[in-house]
Simulated scan of single mutants.
Amino acid sequence: MKQTPDEQVIPVIILAGFLGSGKTTLLNHLLRHNNGQKIGVIVNDFGEANIDTLLVNRQTENTMELSGGCICCQVGDGDLEESLSMFAHPGSTTDVVIIEASGIAEPVDLKKLILYSPNKTVRLGGVVYVVDAANLIDTIKDHEDIKQHIKAADLLILNKIDIASRNQLESSLKLLKELNSNTPIVQTSHGAIDSRLLFDQNPNEDKQLKLIAQSNDEHHKHLHDNFSSVNFHSNKPLSPKRFSNFIKNLPPEVYRLKGVIYYGMKGFEQKIIIHKVGNHISQHAEEWRSYEDPASDIVAIGIEIDTKLLNKRLAKCIDPSPDEIRADDMVDIMRLKGF
């Protein structure tokens, strides 16, 4: 165990949850309502293009990113330790570090990285696991490993209750209590929770080590072993009509899509932030920051994706004649939920 006095040790909170559960939305809420806490953020996205970092950077400049793989597989690589040391070191003014894990990370392995960290200025601040109330039951049918993720949580956030039916909400609550009866459950929408619920988390370290020992004995495959991702970047504007057709005809293997879209047409110069989980789509417009070069960055995550075909289809969304785009071309995009 670490010998550093508690007052010099910075808690590291692991923010986890399956794809599209609302982790980044919750994190941005915490950054906006931080109660005076100085928060360091480490964002890990499964794809090479870290879309979540782009979305979090709108709220804070104290952000480090770990892209191109799942953080729970980086034991010994040093990337996480290097990122932690940027925030947690003797004399640091950081109050808390939040690691936003990828949507298919293993919470127990993440706990292991923090509990066994050689950095004596950090301690495990707990695992906060975000759950999509509208999709939990259906998602677990396809991804049984999520049950183990829920069991590893120190705080459960039942998110998106505003779009969940009464039956979905009741079923989700029942399942969460069955899987982790001793862990508090916070119900919310849009990730809106009181930051004090997180920053005061101080899990029992013996309990965490026991969970890790059990995990080491199981030798189970990681959930993300079955997943693949497609990363797309373009400095050229996308065609609204072509991208709308692309979204409407996504193959069923793509479970999650998120990104920043650049259309570049008169009247729609802003960047469009888009999220798609299953059949649920949300999007909104934001102004480009002065230091940003307009471009589209998209990540699609799913099981057994034909990555070459999907990249080819995304490339076809680039508009060959952006100067000829008319405002009417945005009609299909605006019909998508969020406008």
Rank of each mutant, 00 (worst) to 15 (best):
R313W: 08
E304W: 13
L257A: 02
L223C: 12
F246E: 08
I212V: 09
H222Y: 12
E304I: 05
G264D: 02
L211G: 03
Y291M: 07
I325W: 11
C317P: 08
I318V: 14
N311C: 09
K236F: 07
N311Y: 13
P251G: 03
H220P: 06
D217L: 14
N235C: 08
Y291V: 13
Q214S: 15
I305G: 04
K276V: 12
M265V: 11
R289K: 14
I274M: 10
Q283S: 10
D293R: 06
F243G: 10
P320F: 12
S215D: 10
E269K: 10
N226Y: 14
G259E: 02
D306I: 07
Q283N: 04
V230G: 04
A300Y: 00
E218F: 11
D297K: 12
S290W: 00
I298T: 00
F227C: 01
I298E: 14
P322E: 01
G259N: 00
Y255G: 13
P237L: 03
H222T: 13
E286A: 03
E292A: 01
F246K: 07
C317A: 13
E287K: 14
W288D: 01
N311H: 08
K236S: 14
V260L: 14
M265H: 13
H222C: 03
R256V: 01
R242N: 07
R326S: 10
A285L: 00
E292R: 09
K258G: 08
S215Q: 05
E286Q: 10
E218D: 06
K241R: 11
L211Y: 12
F246R: 12
N231I: 06
N279S: 11
S296D: 01
